[in-house]
Amino acid sequence: MKLEIYDPALCCSTGVCGPDVDPELTRIATDIHILQQNKQDIQRYNLAQEPEPFVQQAEIGELMEKEGTDILPVSVLNGKVVKTNAYPSREELCEWFGLNRDLLENRASPSHIDISIK
């Protein structure tokens, strides 16, 4: 399984910065970190910092042409768009990767996890 998440333009690679952090950005960054630590193939692209993947993935370009950037975030699983306008839920992530939901539900506190993108 390969999941690609096409983020709207964010201030940094995760969007988890500044004084008013969106809790949904913190949640998805933490979930992605945990999944990657468990050897899951997840890529995340930020429109402000990495516009090229948005152009290279034809379906993303078409969606943005029709709907504008409001369609973002978009999740693409194995080359197929599976979700638009929102980040995948924990339930969806676990279902897509065939993992027990406890992996994400019973994780360490986000303050103890390095969520920086390398």
Rank of each mutant, 00 (worst) to 15 (best):
M1K: 01
L3H: 00
E4G: 07
I5F: 10
S13Y: 07
T14M: 08
V16L: 03
V16P: 04
C17H: 10
C17K: 11
C17Q: 10
P19H: 02
V21Q: 05
T26N: 15
A29C: 09
I34F: 07
Q36E: 15
Q36M: 13
Q36H: 15
K39Q: 10
D41M: 12
D41R: 12
D41L: 05
I42T: 12
I42C: 12
Y45M: 14
N46Q: 08
N46D: 04
N46P: 07
L47A: 11
Q49K: 14
E50Q: 15
P51K: 14
P51N: 13
P51Y: 14
P51H: 13
P51G: 15
E52G: 10
P53V: 09
F54A: 14
V55M: 13
V55E: 14
Q56H: 15
Q56D: 15
I60L: 11
G61A: 11
L63R: 02
M64N: 04
M64V: 08
M64R: 13
G68I: 14
T69M: 15
T69H: 15
D70N: 14
I71H: 01
I71D: 02
N78E: 06
G79M: 02
V81I: 09
K83R: 00
K83H: 00
R90C: 01
E91M: 03
E92P: 02
E92N: 07
E95M: 05
W96H: 01
W96A: 03
L99G: 08
N100H: 11
L104T: 06
E105F: 10
E105W: 05
N106R: 08
R107Q: 04
A108Q: 13
I113E: 06
I113W: 05
I113R: 00
I117Q: 10
K118T: 15
K118M: 15
